[in-house]
């Protein structure tokens, strides 16, 4: 076990933006999350690291309300959301970018981009989004799934930025993408952090995670087994290799 105290902010007083506690989750009869617990403070970029099947995606699905059978507590901005349907959770200002990206084949790029309703004021304008992702403008009339993998990932992120969501859950945005694209996504995440977004990032690639995150939450078999501040990552490499099995 790591030292959880090391991750508590010096002030330690401000309530976290997102507080996950005793979170249990099931797919049918199969019990996948076993008392997940971690906090995310406003403006932070926190990664969830862990092996394949550790329960990272399931944790995000439980937070956004997509996992039907869940129990425990997920408090967002002081409001308990564990019992809310996912559409009401989204309306509170939480944006989700799924692992499979979820770009719709029957919608063109522009329609995909405009699909999620604005849930809060202060989202990015279309112009700002096109500035950040010029490809999306060029290809606005193409079928969504005709984009390259990298472009689809940009689209999946961009459509959430429009909505004004302040907490963004990103599930393995770099998976299967070329190094230049990974770099571009890294820049995007740093830019969003600078703009005040709070981000929970699921990653397998901790070398990438290291370039964007403030803190790393390590997950094994549906539980948090360690929390490592980004500054301490190098010092904990051996431990991390053991957790991730790399």
């Amino acid at each position: 076990m790591g030292d959880p105290a090391a991750s508590v902010s010096p002030a330690g007083t401000a309530a976290p933006l997102l507080a996950v506690d005793r979170l249990e989750g099931w797919y049918g009869e199969s019990h996948v999350l076993h008392g997940m617990a971690f906090d995310v403070r406003e403006g932070e970029v926190v990664t969830l690291l862990g092996r394949n099947g550790a329960g990272k995606t399931t944790t995000l699905k439980a937070i956004v309300g997509m996992l039907e059978k869940r129990r425990g507590s997920v408090v967002f901005e002081g409001v308990e959301t564990i019992g809310l349907p996912s559409r009401k959770i989204a309306r509170r200002g939480l944006g989700y970018v799924p692992e499979e990206r979820g770009v719709f084949a029957s919608l063109n790029v522009y329609e995909n981009l405009m699909l999620p309703p604005v849930v809060r004021p202060g989202g990015m304008s279309l112009e700002a989004i096109y500035q950040l992702f010029p490809n999306l403008k060029e290809r606005s009339t193409s079928q969504g799934t005709k984009l390259s993998g990298g472009e689809q990932q940009m689209l999946a992120i961009a459509r959430i930025l429009r909505t004004g969501a302040k907490l963004i859950l990103l599930d393995e945005p770099t998976e299967g993408l070329a190094p230049v694209i990974v770099q571009q996504i890294g820049e995007t995440i740093r830019r969003l952090k600078a703009d005040g977004y709070t981000i929970v990032l699921v990653e397998q690639n901790f070398r990438f995670a290291q370039t964007v995150a403030d803190r790393h939450v390590v997950i094994e078999l549906g539980r948090v087994v360690d929390e490592i501040p980004n500054e301490a990552l190098e010092a904990n490499l051996e431990k991390l290799h053991a957790y991730l099995g790399v």
Partner: peptide
């Protein structure tokens, strides 16, 4: 295509 995902957008 994907009702569950559309629901996570607040629809």
């Amino acid at each position: 295509e994907n009702p569950a995902l559309v629901q996570t957008f607040g629809v």
